[in-house]
């Protein structure tokens, strides 16, 4: 079932890459349409699964990734429609494709624990997923910022100079995405702590790598916000920080979820 959105995301990726190379308006529209179709089919699949289990399907790592990809696609579509900038699409879709490959080709459904229900659990998971999607956007915007920055600084105006929006705009978008991500990360972490207290779940401590790494994440992004506001770090430095932060998010999201964590097998 998850193969349909995967195929559509792949089609959108090809269209965005082609549009990046050729820059014709028709290709741009095709790319957006393909991505919208992918997101729509993905919405349908998540909706079906929600009806099936009676709750938003975020209780195992695979479905959480699928949910994350969906959030990322929707968030990106929103920024594209509001800013009319398509140059970043090819970068976002690379990430989307890589992650969506997991739910698309991993078919075994994991048994859900009876503990994992209730509104607080929902807040915990959905806030964190939304935060991660924001960080993913910030990461991609940060990469494009660095690429454009290098072109201008080294005076080799080329591919990115012709296609990307200005450094100022990229920096603002990056900052905004990080603020939104940080707020939801904080909400998600607090909700997780309260939920763990309520259910008295076992092994919810800093020894769980997932919790530990999530806290590191929070520290990195808090520092980035502090640095941008107080020390006057801007541009390239914050872009590098958002790349570091997202690397930790990915580490937490994929390998740790599947192989390491004891309490967060979802």
């Amino acid at each position: 079932m998850n193969l349909v959105p995967f195929a559509l995301y792949a089609a959108a990726f090809v269209a965005y890459a082609w549009h990046f190379a050729r820059r014709t308006p028709a290709l741009g529209r095709t790319a957006t349409t393909a991505l919208a179709a992918a997101a729509l089919s993905h919405t349908f699949i998540i909706g079906m699964r929600t009806m099936e289990v009676g709750q938003v399907p975020v209780f195992d790592a695979t479905s959480a990734i699928s949910m994350f990809v969906w959030l990322l696609a929707v968030a990106y579509l929103y920024t594209e429609v509001t800013t009319d900038e398509r140059a970043m699409g090819v970068f976002i879709l690379t990430l989307i494709l890589a992650l969506q490959a997991i739910p698309a080709f991993k078919t075994d459904v994991e048994v859900r624990s009876s503990v994992l229900r209730g509104p607080l659990f929902g807040v915990h998971v959905s806030s964190l997923l939304f935060a991660y999607a924001s960080f993913a956007l910030a990461f991609v915007i940060g990469i494009t910022y660095v690429l454009l920055f290098k072109e201008i600084k080294t005076k080799h105006l080329g591919v990115f100079f012709a296609r990307l929006p200005s450094l100022q705009v990229l920096d603002q978008m990056n900052q905004r995405a990080i603020v939104v991500g940080w707020v939801f990360l904080t909400i998600g972490l607090v909700a997780g702590v309260v939920f763990a207290e309520q259910t008295q779940a076992p092994a919810m401590s800093l020894q769980d790598p997932k919790i530990f790494v999530a806290l590191i994440c929070w520290v990195v992004y808090s520092f980035e916000l502090f640095a941008a506001r107080r020390i006057g770090w801007a541009g390239r430095r914050t872009a590098y920080l958002s790349a570091l932060g997202f690397a930790i998010v990915l580490l937490n999201f994929v390998p740790i979820s599947y192989f390491l964590t004891s309490s967060h097998k979802f």
């Binding site: 105006l157 200005s166 450094l167 100022q168 705009v169």
Partner: peptide, 8 residues
């Protein structure tokens, strides 16, 4: 053009 790419 350069100024626009830097400052928008």
């Amino acid at each position: 053009g350069l100024a626009r790419k830097i400052f928008g």
